[in-house]
Design a protein around this nucleic acid. Structure first.
Length: 298
DNA sequence: ATCGGTCCCTGTGTGC
DNA sequence: TGCACACAGGGACCGA
């Protein structure tokens, strides 16, 4: 469910409320939330007990909390992915347990705890080592990323995102442009909502083949992706229901600014033509049939 | 090596 | 009311 603007909103909340604090204990209430930590929940809890959180980092839809290096646990980071319905909440220890509370992180200061709540259990956490990012230009400070997400592309709000490299790789692909936008190894942070919104802004149909895009069209698409992600971040993200909230349980309000997503039959904000919905990858695509002309069948 | 389809989950809304 | 079904912000994995 959460895409870059929602995950970044959560990251900012973690930076504010969790950075600098020392984890006292981790309670694993649902094994599925730690399935990506292959050594198991007990190992995860042991690695985190006594660890101090340096800060809150993010790439695309992945979050991580780098841990202060300790001889016993060799640092590393706590990585989290929210999947479709995951929430990281900062709450008083005596707040009632949520229905789908799967993980509880208590802190040594006895203050507000961190909880992972996830209805559909597609999200989860793991502890991993950090490795140097291999694409930092000379003269820039070195960066470390969790080994497990080193294959994830930088996101378009990352200062080191390489626009021309993206345009090159996009046009070299042989697939539909919406599929490419959702491929986190090409560009990260874009999900179903912002893919549709970006394509509408760029006046491109999601079924256009990537190889048919001109360089200017590809650059324009990237500019619109960046713009819509930035606009949504300003609004605190998109919340259709209570499933996406920030660490304090508050909703974002970008749903009011959506042009096409979830708006079947309603008028296109640009030309008034009714928005259409089409099945796509077990989900939906929303588009304006006038502004975004479908490509001819190949 | 890529690409495209399927599956993992729970909950909600709709139509019969 | 109850039931069946479609659908929901993601992505790992498998076969072609």
């Amino acid at each position: 469910m959460p895409e870059l603007p929602e995950v970044e909103t959560v990251r900012a909340g973690l930076q504010r409320w969790v950075a600098g604090r020392t984890i006292a204990a981790v309670e694993v209430r649902h094994a599925r939330s730690v399935r990506r930590h292959l050594a198991g929940g007990a190992d995860l809890a042991a690695r985190l007990a006594g660890a101090t959180v340096r800060c809150a980092s993010r790439r695309g839809k992945y979050l991580w909390l780098p841990l202060v290096d300790r001889p016993a646990a060799s640092g590393g980071a706590l990585i989290a992915h929210l999947g479709m319905s995951g929430q990281l909440l900062v709450e008083a220890p005596d707040a009632p347990d949520e229905r789908h509370l799967h993980l509880r992180f208590a802190f040594a200061d006895g203050g507000r705890e961190l909880r992972f709540v996830d209805q559909r259990t597609f999200g989860g956490v793991l502890v991993d080592r950090l490795v140097p990012a291999d694409d930092v230009p000379a003269g820039r400070p070195p960066e470390r990323v969790p080994a497990q997400i080193a294959h994830i592309a930088r996101d378009p709000l990352d200062p080191l995102f390489d626009d021309e490299q993206f345009v090159l790789r996009l046009r070299r692909r042989d697939t539909e442009v919406k599929r490419a936008l959702l491929d986190q190894t090409l560009i990260s942070g874009v999900g179903n909502i912002y893919a549709d919104e970006s394509l509408w802004r760029a006046r491109l149909h999601g079924a256009r083949r990537t190889a048919t895009l001109s360089r200017p069209a590809a650059r324009e698409l990237l500019a619109q992706v960046r713009a819509v992600l930035g606009d949504a971040l300003q609004a605190g993200g998109t919340s259709f229901d209570a499933l996406y909230v920030n660490v304090n349980g508050e909703s974002g309000y970008f749903d009011r600014s959506l042009a096409v997503y979830g708006r079947e039959h309603r008028p296109c904000p640009r030309c008034g033509t009714p928005i259409r919905r089409a099945a796509f990858m077990n989900r939906s695509s929303f588009f304006c049939p006038q502004c975004q002309r479908p490509p001819r069948a190949r």
